[in-house]
């Protein structure tokens, strides 16, 4: 099986004034289709930088990233936008919903950029939101929703274009533990039901417990990469 995501000696350097900061120092990694991978590490370990590069939001300073066999480091901005829209779904710690759009409009927005018809957008959006228990909230704006509801809207948005890979950066970071647990269950469900590849970044070992594969990062390098049995219990 070809990996859906393949990293070859990926590096990322930031120039902070006169100081050069190496956030990611030569990471190589393969993620198979349908895998549930957690990238774990303390803050400042470079895990979010890595995730941004996997999600094509950022370009590496060195090395290569292949998404479905294609080298993304050689793509133009337009091609990258296309790739993000079709192949990748994003879930952020701060939810990142557009404040003046309703829940449904937030979910259908990625489909607009892919040129889907209004009918199809509305049907798919309503379907996703109902499956996440937000049927009565589709007309509400983010400010009228609770944190958990907002993150569920964001999850629905991430799955809107039926992407192969869903990337989540500290998805429960802004939620209390009960809500966080529910969100992780939703993600696990999507993973089990639709066989999507899910990559989660976290510093929380409880989150890591949900995944099949765990990648530990420290100082921009992989320190441990191992497969673990998926746990469905939230350890407190």
């Amino acid at each position: 099986m070809d990996p859906v995501i393949k990293l070859e000696d990926v590096r990322k350097t930031y120039q902070l004034g006169k100081v050069e900061l190496e956030a990611v120092r030569g990471i190589s990694l393969e993620i198979n289709p349908g895998a549930f991978v957690t990238i774990m590490g303390p803050s400042g370990s470079g895990k979010s930088t890595l995730l941004n590069m996997i999600g094509c939001l950022d370009v590496p300073s060195g090395g290569k990233i292949f998404l479905k066999g294609k080298d993304v480091t050689k793509m133009t901005e337009t091609q990258l936008a296309q790739l993000r829209g079709r192949t990748i779904g994003f879930i952020f710690q701060e939810f990142n919903l557009i404040p003046n759009l309703t829940a449904l409009e937030n979910v259908t927005l990625p489909m607009i950029f892919q040129g889907k018809s209004e009918e199809e957008r509305k049907r798919r959006g309503a379907e996703l939101l109902s499956s996440l228990g937000l049927k009565d909230r589709i007309k509400h704006q983010p400010a009228e929703l609770s944190g958990g509801e907002r993150q569920r809207v964001a999850i629905a948005r991430a799955f809107a274009n039926d992407p192969e890979v869903v990337i989540a950066d500290e998805p429960t970071g802004n939620l209390d533990s009960t809500t966080g647990k529910k969100i992780m269950e939703v993600l696990t469900n999507f993973h089990n039901k639709e066989g999507k590849t899910i990559v989660v970044v976290t510093h929380d070992p409880n989150i890591a417990g949900y995944s099949e594969e765990l990648v530990n990062i420290k100082d921009g390098q992989i320190v441990k990469n191992h497969v673990q049995a998926q746990k469905s219990v939230w350890e407190k």
Binding site: L57, A81, N96, P99, R157
Partner: peptide
């Protein structure tokens, strides 16, 4: 700016 970032993350091209 943040909103623009979100839109780009979910697939908006520069032209959009």
């Amino acid at each position: 700016t943040r909103e623009i970032g979100i839109m780009k993350a979910i697939g908006a091209k520069n032209s959009a």
